[in-house]
């Protein structure tokens, strides 16, 4: 029987490959934009950071969508369900590889920004000065680091939450169809769709709210008082929710959810 690290490697490879394909197009987009800028503004005024971040946001989103899809498909294809791994390990390896693949895309973006900074050291300072209040002392820097970490944790939690939630919808309807005859199935699925839409809308507005909060903290970093405990508590409860939903998904996977064939 295979270990978690083994399952991880098996599931990692296709995701890594598709992320690399995506990053290849990302790089092409960046290079073409830069060439266009050089042609328009001249080499002296070349500013890489906006380009990289702009395309980074676009391709980061595409990466997220692709991984959401792959995350779903792997769990319902015989190719992966036949692996001599327990369903728990398989589910977790799938989730973790998706996350690592997304982080990988993020890290590449950061590296690109760093390259951009190295090319034009002045620009990054200008960028920060225009976009962020840059009069920081040591305490502010610590706050900035703290909020940076919080933001990363939040991002991870939100991504994981979306993935386990999509799994939940999928597995839930799958499980229901295993038990109910067609007519009742349709009714239950209809009701479920309404509830889930409502939950999804609430979740989106909550994230929007959260995002503006975090952004406010970030841009006015010098004059905030560090009242982060509320955010950390929310974060903790979100992680607990993720764990519960994941456990539920694994349970359904063990008992009812089969691959499509």
């Amino acid at each position: 029987m295979t270990s978690f690290s083994h399952a991880f490697r098996v599931m990692w490879r296709p995701k890594f490959r598709s992320m690399n394909q995506l990053l290849f197009f990302n790089l092409i987009a960046v290079v073409i934009t830069m060439l266009y800028q050089i042609w328009q503004l001249g080499l002296a005024n070349l500013e890489m950071i906006t380009t990289v971040m702009g395309w980074g946001a676009v391709f980061g989103f595409v990466a997220f969508i692709l991984l959401t899809r792959q995350n779903e498909q792997m769990l319902v294809s015989d190719t992966y369900r036949l692996l001599p791994t327990g369903d728990t390990k398989l589910y977790l390896a799938n989730l973790v590889t998706s996350l690592v693949a997304l982080v990988y895309v993020g890290v590449v973006q950061v590296v690109l920004v760093l390259i951009g900074t190295a090319m034009t050291g002045k620009t990054i300072r200008n960028w920060f000065q225009t976009n962020v209040n840059f009069q920081m002392n040591a305490a502010d820097l610590r706050n900035l680091a703290l909020y940076g970490t919080t933001t990363v944790f939040w991002a991870v939690a939100i991504v994981l939450w979306i993935w386990v939630f999509v799994n939940l919808i999928h597995f839930g309807t799958n499980t229901i169809s295993a038990f109910l005859p067609n007519v009742q199935q349709r009714i239950v699925k209809g009701v479920l769709a309404v509830i889930l839409t409502w939950v999804a809308i609430r979740f989106m507005s909550w994230i929007a709210h959260l995002e503006s909060q975090v952004y406010n903290h970030f841009t006015t970093v010098s004059d905030i008082t560090l009242n982060a405990s509320g955010i950390w508590l929310d974060l903790l409860s979100l992680f607990v929710a993720i764990a519960v939903v994941a456990a539920l998904n694994i349970f359904m996977m063990k008992r009812w959810v089969e691959a499509k064939y």
Binding site: M1, T2, Q73, M74, S77, D78, T79, Y80, L82, L83, P84, T85, G86, D87, A259, K260, Y261
Partner: peptide, 18 residues
Amino acid sequence: REAPRRAFVSFSEALQGF
């Protein structure tokens, strides 16, 4: 048990995951 059993069995799977 399901998972260890899979290690013994080679099933002609239709390559649907590729």
